[in-house]
Simulated assay, not measured.
Amino acid sequence: MHRSERVSMYGWIWRHLPGNTWVRALVSLVLSLAIVFVLFQYVFPWAEPLLPFGDVTVDNGGGSR
């Protein structure tokens, strides 16, 4: 497999961002922060009731110390 055939997702995104290296880095940072914001504001609260994290039981009896 030639190097040109192994295209990474990140390389493809980087090549399609506008501007020089500094502008691309700034756009990447803004996009990353926007994705994190959307995840914390909308996706995680929506998914939380679907996850079994509230069904945890802790046994207080006779474990080793």
Rank of each mutant, 00 (worst) to 15 (best):
D59I: 06
S32Y: 14
V43W: 11
W12P: 00
V58Q: 08
G61I: 12
V7T: 09
L50V: 05
F53T: 15
R6A: 11
L17A: 02
L50P: 00
R3H: 11
G11N: 12
G54N: 13
D55N: 15
D55T: 10
G19L: 03
L51W: 15
L31V: 15
R65N: 11
V43Y: 11
R65L: 13
F40A: 01
L51N: 10
G54S: 14
W22D: 06
L26F: 12
H16N: 15
R24D: 00
E5W: 11
F37E: 04
S32R: 09
W46C: 05
A25S: 07
E5F: 12
L33N: 04
M1T: 05
R24N: 01
W12D: 03
L39M: 07
P18Y: 06
V27C: 03
W46Y: 15
A34P: 01
V30R: 01
N60E: 12
N20A: 03
R3D: 06
V23R: 13
W46G: 05
P45C: 07
L31R: 10
L26P: 00
M9R: 11
I13P: 03
V38T: 07
A47Y: 08
M9A: 09
F37V: 05
V23D: 04
F53W: 15
M9C: 04
P52K: 08
V43G: 03
I35W: 13
L51K: 10
L31C: 15
G62N: 14
F44K: 09
A34E: 02
G11S: 11
R15L: 06
T21S: 05
V23T: 13
G11K: 08
Q41G: 03
W14F: 03
F40M: 05
R3G: 01
P49E: 13
Y10D: 02
L17M: 10
I35N: 04
V43M: 07
S32W: 13
L17W: 04
Q41T: 13
S28N: 05
R6C: 09
E48K: 14
L39A: 04
S8T: 15
N20T: 01
L26M: 10
H2P: 07
S4K: 05
L31F: 15
W14V: 00
N20D: 12
S4L: 05
P52A: 14
A34C: 12
P45I: 07
R6N: 10
I13S: 02
I13W: 08
L51G: 10
R3I: 06
M1P: 02
G62L: 12
Y42R: 13
V58K: 08
L39Q: 03
W46V: 08
D59W: 06
L17T: 03
N20W: 01
P45M: 07
R15Y: 05
L26A: 14
E48N: 13
